[in-house]
């Protein structure tokens, strides 16, 4: 499986400025805040906790077609499935790749961002934890929706309509600082769900 993971990561991070772009995306989404709401530090601190989730959700959601589609369109997916008949391997590899490319940058720059928005240290740890478990769950969800809707091109907004209601449980508990166990539980449920449904989805298209 690590060979597959290495290959996926290499392809995704081939343009090594990917980290820069995704980080910039998160920073820019947050920069909008003071422009929209003014620079009152108390207010910004509260808003930050929410908007960071919007940035994360968008980053995961809008790029969801990159999980399987590139390989599917090349015909490589067929070959990969022959090589790794246990679909779970493929799904996990794609999941890890997507998370590393579109979520990890957020966690790397989160200390700086929290500093910019006057977040206290203990809050920071809890926010980090919440975002971490939430991001896992959300990427699992996006994986199976993407696997189900593999062939459909340019339907990203339709997929957003499907995915955002599925994100809602994570978002509801995400801003509450004491709910990281709940988020962990939710992400484990999405893990199980995603394994089944993604495998089903992949089988639909590659048979």
């Amino acid at each position: 499986m690590f060979a597959l993971l290495k290959r996926d990561l290499y392809l995704a991070l081939y343009s090594s400025s990917s980290f820069f772009y995704t980080s910039s995306f998160f920073i820019l989404v947050l920069i909008i805040l003071p422009f929209l709401f003014g620079t009152n530090d108390v207010q910004l601190q509260v808003l930050f906790k929410g908007i960071i989730w919007i940035g994360l959700s968008l980053s995961i959601l809008l790029t969801m077609e990159r999980i399987f589609n590139a390989d599917y369109e090349d015909g490589n997916l067929d070959i990969i499935i022959q090589r790794y008949p246990s679909l779970e391997t493929i799904i996990i590899s794609k999941f890890i790749t997507h998370w590393i490319v579109y979520c990890l940058p957020l966690f790397i720059i989160l200390p700086i961002l929290s500093f910019l928005f006057y977040v206290s240290l203990d809050s920071f740890f809890l926010i980090f934890l919440n975002l971490f478990f939430g991001s896992l769950g959300m990427v699992f969800i996006v994986t199976f929706v993407s696997a189900l809707t593999l062939g459909a091109k340019r339907t990203i907004f339709l997929k957003a309509v499907i995915v955002i209601p599925l994100f809602v449980p994570f978002l509801i508990f995400g801003t509450n600082l004491e709910s990281w166990p709940i988020l962990l539980a939710l992400s484990m449920m999405s893990f199980v769900l995603s394994m089944y449904v993604s495998a089903y989805g992949l089988r639909l298209y590659v048979e």
Partner: peptide, 27 residues
């Protein structure tokens, strides 16, 4: 294909509703 995908999504959505209701209640 449409039948299969819609059916899968309908079921996932059905499971999601009580989760949402519970979450919002709790919140």
């Amino acid at each position: 294909l449409a039948s299969k995908i819609s059916a899968a999504l309908a079921i996932v959505g059905f499971v999601n509703i009580p989760i949402i209701k519970f979450s919002v209640d709790w919140w």
